[in-house]
């Protein structure tokens, strides 16, 4: 419970100047990190060290630092979001590491996520998939009273389980095929579980899956790696539901 000090850590980190250049690993030493600090606080300290030494700091994505915005995206010691379960990188704490350890930090690796700089990747492909159908087509105003359509509590809860996806892309990074099936299925399930989303369910599944294929994500071979690394524990049963919706849409076409 009480915080300890990690006297020395070696951070072996991917450095890449921009999308066009070739990257490589560099190793930096950092001292006196509290086990109560978060992984990203350690990165802040390392960066401030580098700046004072005249070295370009390591670019990495982060924002809310409370595990909900989905911005942070590091691959740490071979695992998306690092060696803990149900956390994003910003919630990963240094108590998960040992004094003297070498920590390997890489960006998400996927064809659909090109590196922008160092550890920062471009994930706009995920936005594009959602733009292909991840919504209910209602305009502002003119909607019925919120209690006009009762929704079974279990359905609402299951929709919420799927809607908890933060769009970080860890599922893609964990998958050997770089498939975005868990991400797509979470949105399809979230909306298909609710009466408001069922009207467009078939078209939504078709459009999102074809957009995913078009953007260079791989196919799903059911390894389950995505589910293990998902910081929000999105279940792969959602993929089964997506497959059902997709099949229904194909048959009725």
């Amino acid at each position: 419970m009480a915080d300890k000090i990690l006297k020395e850590l070696k951070i072996k980190v991917w450095r890449q100047k921009n999308a066009k250049s070739k990257g490589k690993f560099e190793t930096y030493v950092i001292n006196d990190i509290s086990t109560g600090s978060s992984f990203l606080e350690m990165m802040d300290i390392l960066n401030n060290d580098l700046i004072e030494k005249g070295i370009d700091p390591i670019a990495f994505d982060h924002d809310c630092r409370e595990g909900i915005c989905g911005t942070c995206s590091l691959h740490i010691n071979g695992r998306p979001h690092g060696p803990d379960t149900e956390v994003t990188t910003c919630q990963l704490h240094m108590r998960k590491f040992k004094d003297g350890e070498t920590i390997i930090v890489e960006p998400w690796r996927a064809r659909a996520f090109p590196v922008i700089k160092d550890l920062v990747v471009d994930r706009t492909a995920l936005d594009k998939i959602l733009q292909a159908g991840g919504f209910v087509s209602v305009n502002t105003g003119g909607v019925p009273d919120a209690n006009a359509i009762p929704v079974a509590r279990d359905d609402a809860e299951e929709a919420m389980d799927a809607a908890a996806c933060i769009g970080c892309g860890a599922c893609v990074a964990a998958c050997k095929n770089s498939s975005a099936m868990l991400f797509v299925s979470a949105k399809v399930s979230h909306l298909a579980k609710l009466p408001q989303g069922q009207v467009e369910a078939a078209a939504r599944a078709m459009n999102m899956v074809s957009k995913m294929d078009e953007l260079g994500f791989g196919g799903c071979t059911n390894t389950g790696a995505c589910e293990v690394e998902c910081p929000k524990s999105i279940s792969i049963t959602n993929i089964a539901r997506l497959n059902r919706e997709y099949l229904k849409a194909r048959i009725s076409r």
Binding site: V143, D145, A146, A156, H190, G197
Partner: peptide, 23 residues
């Protein structure tokens, strides 16, 4: 304020519900 809740439900926001299916 009431219109906001109507709008969000129509968009598919999964608000917490009672067993009877209401919010």
């Amino acid at each position: 304020s009431p219109n906001i809740i109507d709008q969000c439900v129509a968009q598919g926001v999964p608000f917490g519900r009672e067993y009877g299916g209401l919010l």
